[in-house]
Simulated assay, not measured.
Amino acid sequence: MASPFFLFLLLLPFAILLLVLAAIVRPRPVRIPLKGRHVLVTGGSSGIGLALALRAAAEGARVSILARDPSRLQDARDAIRLATGVDVAILAADVRDPEAVARALGAADPVDVLVCNHGVFLPQELERQSLEDVRFMVEVNLMGTFHLIKAALPAMKQRAKESGLPGSVAIMSSQAGQVGVYGYAAYSASKFGLRGLAEALQHEVIADNIHITLVFPPDTDTPGLAEEHKRRPEITKLIAGSQGGMKADDVAKKALNGIKSGQFVVACNFEGYLLYVATVGLSPQRSCLMAFVEILGVGFMRFVGLCYQWSWFTSIEKWHAKTKSG
């Protein structure tokens, strides 16, 4: 049996590390209240966006949903009213159009919590994919997020200053924004870009008491998932699988909890958590305990990542050998 002194020596470095982390992790912990505050959710007419709007309304937030199709927005408003008894505002705009986004947000109340949930996914090998499809994904997923934040930020800053309450900008990325996979070149590029936006933006707005949350959902059971599976290259199906991952409401619950606690990164399932540790890089971290786990886990997760890459490249080699021989 180990002596108490030996155990003390064994645990001392970890205790010192925790104390150091408690002193240096930034930003500091924060709580983002929702009740009575204006939450605007883009892509709010279906899927994760609708689930987020439902949950925010149920928690007493004043909710607005933004999407392109007015009829689908009306259906979503009716569904939220039926489920919660709460009426929400609807805003019709294409996030690719900065003027339309600015008009929509200008007609709405100042935003306390902006959830940039919109997104499109057209999987295909880059060589075969049209530049129109590439541009469409980049303009919606990446530029659309810039348009929304640019339009909302001035009023959000003023709102946080006047109320003394923290504001939040949540950005919906994807696990394909953490690791690139065959057939996802354009989509991953658009989603990887959101991480750079989120990290730099947090530096820019922290003094205004606005906090950034970056969400990395897996495949989620949404109306577009079945169509996405039909378009996926066969190799992608071998590597990433072809079954749906999480339910939209489960992703919404994880995302909203992360927003309320000011988490910079929200992983939605166990695989996402492993990806988060493996790709943490220089991301902000509010929790000294999570920073401790990251420090201990990064080396091991690099090994796990190499194992995944071995499996993926092996699948690709076998696929090409099979198709050439056929």
Results as ranks from 00 to 15, higher is better:
residue 3 S to H: 03
residue 4 P to M: 08
residue 5 F to Q: 13
residue 7 L to S: 14
residue 8 F to P: 01
residue 9 L to C: 13
residue 9 L to N: 05
residue 11 L to K: 10
residue 11 L to E: 03
residue 13 P to H: 01
residue 15 A to W: 04
residue 18 L to M: 12
residue 19 L to K: 04
residue 24 I to V: 15
residue 36 G to K: 08
residue 36 G to M: 02
residue 43 G to I: 01
residue 45 S to A: 07
residue 45 S to V: 00
residue 47 G to N: 06
residue 47 G to D: 12
residue 47 G to V: 12
residue 49 G to F: 02
residue 50 L to P: 08
residue 55 R to F: 03
residue 64 S to H: 08
residue 64 S to A: 14
residue 65 I to K: 12
residue 67 A to L: 12
residue 67 A to N: 06
residue 69 D to P: 00
residue 77 R to H: 14
residue 79 A to K: 13
residue 80 I to T: 06
residue 81 R to M: 09
residue 81 R to S: 14
residue 82 L to R: 13
residue 87 D to F: 03
residue 96 R to F: 03
residue 97 D to F: 02
residue 99 E to P: 04
residue 101 V to S: 10
residue 102 A to Y: 06
residue 115 V to R: 02
residue 123 P to S: 12
residue 123 P to H: 05
residue 124 Q to V: 07
residue 128 R to I: 04
residue 131 L to I: 14
residue 132 E to N: 07
residue 132 E to F: 05
residue 139 E to S: 05
residue 141 N to G: 13
residue 165 L to C: 03
residue 167 G to E: 03
residue 177 G to M: 11
residue 178 Q to T: 10
residue 182 Y to S: 09
residue 186 A to S: 15
residue 189 A to F: 12
residue 189 A to K: 15
residue 192 F to I: 15
residue 196 G to R: 07
residue 204 E to K: 10
residue 206 I to M: 04
residue 212 I to G: 08
residue 222 T to A: 14
residue 227 E to V: 09
residue 227 E to G: 15
residue 228 E to C: 03
residue 238 L to K: 14
residue 239 I to N: 06
residue 243 Q to H: 02
residue 249 D to Q: 11
residue 250 D to Q: 11
residue 250 D to A: 11
residue 256 L to M: 00
residue 258 G to M: 01
residue 259 I to F: 04
residue 262 G to F: 01
residue 263 Q to C: 11
residue 264 F to R: 00
residue 267 A to Q: 11
residue 271 E to Y: 14
residue 277 V to S: 02
residue 284 P to L: 07
residue 285 Q to T: 10
residue 301 M to N: 01
residue 304 V to Q: 08
residue 305 G to C: 11
residue 309 Q to H: 12
residue 311 S to D: 15
residue 311 S to M: 15
residue 314 T to V: 08
residue 318 K to S: 12
residue 324 K to H: 11
